[in-house]
Design a binder for these strands. Sequence first.
DNA 1: GCATGTCAAGTTGTG
DNA 2: CACAACTTGACATGC
Length: 310
Amino acid sequence: MIRLGLCCLFRQAPIKFSATTARSLLRLDRDAQLARLDRLCLENTLALLAALEEVKRLGFGAFRVLSTLFPLYTHPDVGYQLEQLPSARQIFDILQQVRIRKEYYHLRLSFHPDQFVLLSSPRPEVTASSIDELVYQAKLAALIGADVINIHAGGVYGDKQAALERLAEQIEALPQAIRNRLTLENDDQSYSVADLLPLCDKLSVPLVYDVHHHRCNPDGLSVAAATSACLQSWQRVGREAHLHISSPKYGWGEEPKPHADFIDRADFPDEWLDLSATIDVEAKAKEPAVLRLKEQLALPDWPEKGANDG
DNA sequence: GCATGTCAAGTTGTG
DNA sequence: CACAACTTGACATGC
């Protein structure tokens, strides 16, 4: 059975995640900074709990948590630890409720660190800040029971093999909490499925297969072959596979990379119809897009009847 | 209220 | 050289 996943935000439900800027925080003294961050973190944690309810209500099976749930957490000047916040106890309580709901509804939670998280960079300061960010996301993932932290391989820096070797070294040295959640996704310009497979095989890193990126950045593998490689990489670690679907905003012409509001049914691979896997729907229209795809594929509400037993 | 400029971070390709 | 693209526009400010 396929479970569809919503990514990060809601367009219809009144569920909002709030942010702030470092610049505005820097005009405040530390106590005032922490007070404002406290309010944002508390609101966002409550919004995450509401998000799970809505995801379940809509019959979806997965939710991608936005990286900025705790705004500016790893920022060099205004960063903080949850324990420093006045409402820390309440925030941890709510996070635990998120985990309990997630288990009760059989939902799957994931993270997708943004483009600044690069383990292949030759610049040590880039790698160091990336690992800081991964430590933060892994801590949060452990608290709410998210099993996936999915990143791209990053830049090429003029030598793809050398970059892949740096990536492999960094992955091997990661703390367990990150290592056992880390996944690699093929991207739309540099690293294809074929590029990533040797590393995924060698280090038992699951491959998140993005078919839109694959179509933008082909590698000679068919969709069927890439799907099969993805499934195998997850089977090896005994976990449910994870894939991404999106459609091009302007069609498959000159500019296929930007994402459309909805998924074109024709872009959904036939090879995926019988999968038991999580498929994140990367569509600007958010819930309506996931709902439309769910209807077009005639998928039942998640969890399927019987999945809740035990 | 609403329009507009700005926002922590890296890398790549395009116009 | 500026800017968009990337999993996601939203915040802060000034009128």
